[in-house]
Design a protein around this nucleic acid. Sequence first.
DNA 1: CACGAGACCTGTTCGC
DNA 2: TGCGAACAGGTCTCGT
Length: 285
Amino acid sequence: MPELPEVETIVRSLRNPKEWSAGGSRTLREQPGVIGRQISGATLLWTHTLATPKPDEFIKQITGQVIQNVSRRGKFILITLDEWVLLFHLRMSGDLRVEDQGQPIQKHDRLIIDFTDHLRLVLNDARKFGRAWLVKDEKEVLAGLGPEPLDPTLTGVDLFKSWHRSSRAIKALLLDQGLLAGVGNIYSDEALFQAKVHPLTPGKSLTEENCDQLLYAVRTVLEEGIRKNGASIDWVYRGGDFQNHFKVYQRTGQACKICGSPIERLVIGQRSSHFCPVCQKAKKN
DNA sequence: CACGAGACCTGTTCGC
DNA sequence: TGCGAACAGGTCTCGT
């Protein structure tokens, strides 16, 4: 599921006001925030969900901790505790919700973190790819991540430098979290369309101007995604609206919104890639 | 070292 | 209607 805008939306919802009630002011995802709450215990329902440490250590270390902050790095969610950092990666189908402890456990719930009040934080993840880490220093998990696309100090020249020696398709380079953190399959397709770059274009044939335009396009689509609370496709992620504004993603065979040509689909780096064959001209090397 | 295929999982949709 | 194949927001690991 989640790429940067969906993760950002979840992070913002976890920072909602601590006190929240149905019918109150409209908040993201209509659930209370978690900052300031104290953890009373945890239940691991699928062992593999916890990357580190071992379950008994995890429960011992997390119990009694108070949540100080919630933030995002790439597609990771960081929950800063008094002495530890709890990180989540939702991968394809993960989601986090905050609810009353009286609610029934749902199918695919994998990890439950109870608070000392009546609430709990639940990781639900149908495909079991999602992971949680409890570490002293987030660098243990985040080392190797590329820059944040929305960091204003990042420039097109920086991207040019990290791409221009590669023969890999730009589509695959955009998905490489070690080069740029947070872009996934939806937003890479949408950004390539906006920048009018063919997804198969090798990194080494992109000019600095191309990279400037691509960075601008990536930022534009990510920001629009955030404004629309992310994209909700199928049954996985709730509450987003960006799926109603896709220009190419999952529009195979439909008319390009610019030129009317049918959108095409290719598999690049084992991911489907949607593009307009006319607006995004294949670039010769 | 760089790159691509396979693995990890379950659920939904599509084609015959 | 049934059944298998294809596909799904991601990232590791392994082989070439």
